[in-house]
């Protein structure tokens, strides 16, 4: 699958798709989208890149093993649940900043939770796919 067109296209597609995935993630609270879909889109972006340029190239570009995204994501999601407990509220109580921000809307603990989901989904699906393509 080392076609020139795919190779060239993927160079531009990767950042574009990643940007798109972040966009989907952020708007999830107001419009269709969210951490799950965002994460999956990002995963597909990397898989596409790997198809075009070979797995080693993608892994070099990523610098870290995708598996590391899983604990990081889990930690963010968990901390966003713990955070309200600092204020004597039950685990996972929603908390928001007063003034809304464009695109995202109200900045709240739920957004951080969604970011955690996003990272875990990228991490686990890429771990699965990369491991399979690595082993013969």
């Amino acid at each position: 699958m080392n076609t020139i067109i795919l190779k060239t296209a993927s160079k531009y597609l990767l950042p574009l798709l990643l940007l798109f995935s972040v966009f989907i993630l952020l708007r999830g609270h107001y419009l269709p989208g969210g951490g799950f879909v965002g994460g999956l889109v990002a995963a597909i972006a990397f898989v596409l890149h790997a198809f075009a340029n070979g797995l080693p190239e993608t892994q070099r570009l990523m610098r870290i093993h995708p598996g590391f995204l899983m604990p990081v994501g889990l930690a963010i999601a968990f901390l966003s649940g713990i955070f309200p407990m600092l204020f004597d509220l039950p685990f996972m109580t929603g908390m928001w900043k007063k003034d809304p921000i464009p695109v995202i809307g109200s900045l709240g603990s739920a957004l951080f939770f969604d970011i955690g989901v996003y990272l875990v989904v990228i991490g686990s699906s890429l771990t699965i796919l990369f491991t399979i393509s690595e082993t013969k």
Binding site: G33, F36, G81, S106, A110, F113, V120
Partner: peptide, 22 residues
Amino acid sequence: KGKNVVNVILVDFRGADTLIEI
């Protein structure tokens, strides 16, 4: 403070379930 009800259920109302899911 969310308007996409499906997403709000996942990350807020039933957030603990989603945490376990991931």
